[in-house]
Amino acid sequence: MYIAITRQHLGDKYHGSASDFVKYLEKENEGKALEEQELFFNQTENDIDAQRVVAEIDANTSKLSKKDPKFYSIMVSPSQSELNHIGNDPEKLKEYSREIMKTYAASFYRDKEVTVKDVLYFAKLERERTYSEKDKKVKENQAYASKILELQHQVRAIKEGREQGDMAKLKEKIQVLETEAPHKQNGKRIVPGMTKEGHQSHIHIIVSRKDITNAHSLSPGSKFRTSETTLNGEKVKQGFDRDKFYRAAEKSFDRQFGYRRNFVETYHARNLLDKDPKQFFATLLGLPSNEKQAAKQLLFKAGVKVPSIPTNQAQLAYKTLMQLKKGIGKALESGSIGI
């Protein structure tokens, strides 16, 4: 399960309104009849139109300056394994999103308990994902893409009479490069903008910076988990515990749908790999044989280029350790393992 919280981007194209972000989330509805479109939902309602989302988020910004983000976005992206487990069921994903938002509210540190009823949010299901320039497969195809583009420019120049050359040979070279590119989908070289195959359902959530009453700030961007500050002579609690939120969201999925999560799929493993890679692999080695084998298969499917998982502590040499960490780290960044 990959979950990310991002603040509203404020710049020349973003002037405080949620309209640009909501427009982006409407991309899969373009060209579809109304009955085929995926609408927004919140904790208690379905079929909410985009205009209402923009209006309510934009109106809920009391006492925020132009430099303050007016909303945050939360992306909830289950792995293919998790999606397969729930049959890629959109209703189960919506049900899970509502549970996540209960956890989100509970992760704020305040004098008065924050519940999901205090949070103004709207969520939307998307069914497709496209490859971007950041994807590992696109990056590894890039050298071939550059050569192909160069040859295509030569072919165009010959066609337009600006250069002389053998177009047939150039086209043959292009075809060879297309064949040799390491990553393909349905026989075609993977490029930015190509729709990813398999289950790709995920949820985007837009959540107001202010609470439902437009009186109190609920910022998940706080640098504090728990803190106290003095306001008007009184001590006030503040903070948001992201670790608590991510861990609880993961456990919520497992509990709701009876999902048996392997060690390498856990948020704990991701943290351990980053902060103490030797302990990560020591834990991996200590797993029961069947779980260790399952972990190895998950890593293989994620495209981690390592010879094997070390079989004992003696094999955890520094070079091997860093090689494994780099490979697994890239898989985690792309969400391939689903953490």
Score class of each variant (00 low, 15 high):
250 E>M: 07
237 K>E: 10
304 V>P: 08
311 T>H: 11
29 N>S: 00
2 Y>K: 07
218 L>A: 02
173 K>G: 03
130 T>M: 04
50 A>W: 06
265 E>H: 00
10 L>G: 01
206 I>M: 08
114 V>T: 06
26 E>F: 01
231 L>P: 03
14 Y>F: 14
19 S>Q: 11
274 D>M: 04
218 L>I: 05
46 N>W: 12
177 L>V: 14
92 K>N: 12
250 E>D: 12
35 E>H: 09
205 I>M: 11
108 F>P: 04
154 Q>W: 02
320 T>Q: 10
274 D>V: 10
241 D>I: 06
166 D>Y: 02
196 K>P: 01
132 S>N: 10
7 R>F: 02
164 Q>C: 02
195 T>Y: 05
169 K>F: 04
294 A>G: 04
269 A>D: 00
15 H>C: 13
53 V>I: 02
197 E>L: 15
62 S>R: 02
228 E>P: 00
267 Y>I: 08
194 M>P: 03
50 A>K: 09
339 I>K: 03
262 N>F: 02
45 E>T: 12
82 E>S: 10
146 S>Y: 10
129 R>H: 03
54 V>F: 01
160 E>T: 08
29 N>E: 03
296 K>M: 05
151 L>N: 03
170 L>D: 02
165 G>L: 00
209 R>K: 08
109 Y>P: 12
327 G>E: 08
